[in-house]
Design a protein around this nucleic acid. Structure first.
Lengths: 98, 98
DNA sequence: GGCAGACTTTCCGACATGGAAAGTCACGGG
DNA sequence: CCCGTGACTTTCCATGTCGGAAAGTCTGCC
């Protein structure tokens, strides 16, 4: 039985955003710099993609000042996880993965 | 063991092209009109996407005049199948599907 | 008050996309 | 023979998206 209703999500599909979500789906929370390096983009590009995911309500951004340094961490919202799972399900359907 | 080397392919990734490849991966060959309807795009749009897949050497286009009517059928080339499989593998890797 | 760190925004130029319309090409009809 | 039709293909356009670079914002430290 299918757990999520497959639904193609244009906000998630672009490579950088698919990667961000894929990472967050596994680690639950990750810092801005780590995500930027993992995705392999510049600060501005990551910032812009995160902003779109945030605007869609898929990612939650937490800014904290730790040890005098600004730390921004990212995490999927429950809705973001649902959307991601649904998108992945749709990808599998499209690509013949069941 | 991995059968294909995961490799993100920008030619395949865009939704319409991912769909076209996904369809061809299953049916081996499909007519232009059937693909257009399955993907849900206009003639011109399908034609343009197919052209890109063809330019990349991923899809083979065969035009035949059958019963006085032009019939264009599409099929994945061996290289197209490899590229599609590799892209799908990469998507699974990114999306945490192994 | 000035400086550094960590992001954000703004400013572009380069492409990618899709729909509509015009263009091809090969019949089949009149 | 010329025309209309079917099945695509190209061209024309108006948007949109992307990414890099540079400037801007904020906060805490010196």
């Amino acid at each position: 039985m299918t757990v999520v209703a497959p639904r193609f999500d244009a906000v998630i599909h672009p490579p950088p955003r698919l990667q961000i979500c894929g990472l967050l789906a596994v680690v639950d929370t990750m810092e801005f710099a780590a995500a930027r390096d993992a995705v392999g983009v510049s600060d501005s590009v990551l910032s812009k993609h995160v902003k779109q995911l945030e605007a869609a309500g898929y990612v939650k951004v937490q800014k904290a000042t730790i040890a005098s340094r600004q730390r921004t961490s990212l995490a999927l919202t429950p809705e973001g996880r649902r959307a991601f799972d649904a998108h992945v399900a749709e990808l599998r359907r499209i690509t013949g993965g069941g």
